[in-house]
């Protein structure tokens, strides 16, 4: 069986500095992987490179998504094929209502896949349903994308998009940053509702706390641009006890 995501010996530079020095990991459908590590270990770089953010130079290795070369694709092609990055800091887009944005995005993805556009009533029904489950009032969707949203609202808006787009790979970049416990629980519940045998998640986090709510199958520890240890969910608890220091030494 082809893995959903295969990252092989990935080397990435930003300007003159190498950030990832040969990173390898495999994610299969249905699995939830957590990537943990100290600041500067390359966690977010990995998520950006998978999503196709400009400014990163891949100098070696490859990324396969459902067996296809992901690095050859434009960011929008990756999205249409089922890659979704939930941003650590979702941007604000004044002048574009969330509703218009959601519909434009869904239809762009459907068009790229050769599917017909959503009919407006069907689309509205779907948005209403998902928004209600995430406790997002419809009024919020009439405002500019993320404009004036709280940290929790922005993250819920990311989960709302995830639920609408139905991607096969979700990468959650530091979803817990800036959230209090209640906001975190709502967002995590939304994510858990999307767990399914044909969808994988990669949860990037600095702290173990998030993993109490989104329980991973696999945990990887990153340090200085490499995966230095992989294990089951108990590895996260272990890290909470012992900290990252030992791995920083190991990587050096």
């Amino acid at each position: 069986m082809t893995a959903l995501l295969e990252v092989k010996d990935l080397q990435v530079r930003v300007e003159d500095r190498e950030i990832l020095h040969g990173l390898t990991m495999t994610v299969n459908g249905g699995e939830v992987h957590a990537i943990m590590g100290p600041n500067g270990s390359g966690k977010s770089t990995l998520s950006h490179v998978i999503a196709g953010k400009p400014g990163y130079e891949v100098t070696g290795g490859e990324i396969l998504f459902k067996g296809e070369d992901l690095l050859e694709m434009e960011p929008d092609e990756r999205a249409a094929k089922g890659v979704f990055l939930a941003f650590q800091y979702p941007v604000e887009i004044p002048g574009v209502t969330t509703m218009n944005f959601l519909r434009t995005a869904v239809n762009a993805q459907r068009k790229a896949r050769g599917e017909s556009e959503y009919l407006v009533p069907d689309f509205l029904r779907k948005v209403r349903e998902v928004a209600a489950s995430l406790n997002i009032p419809m009024d919020m969707l009439k405002r500019g994308v993320n404009v004036g949203f709280s940290g929790g609202e922005k993250k819920r808006n990311e989960v709302l998009q995830m639920a609408l787009f139905q991607p096969s790979l979700c990468i959650l970049d530091e979803m817990d940053s800036g959230l209090d416990i209640d906001a975190l629980r709502v967002a995590a519940d939304g994510v858990n509702a999307l767990r399914s045998p044909d969808r994988a998640m990669v949860v990037i986090t600095h702290y173990q706390r998030l993993l109490n709510y989104i329980v991973p199958d696999h945990v990887h520890v990153m340090s200085k641009g490499r995966v230095v240890k992989s294990g089951g969910k108990e590895l996260a608890l272990e890290l909470e006890e012992s900290g990252y220091a030992q791995y920083e030494d190991a990587a050096a």
Binding site: E74, D76, A79, A80, F87, P90, F101, A105, A108, Q109
Partner: peptide, 8 residues
């Protein structure tokens, strides 16, 4: 952000 959401 928009391209990551599927807009060319």
């Amino acid at each position: 952000y928009l391209r990551a959401r599927g807009l060319p």
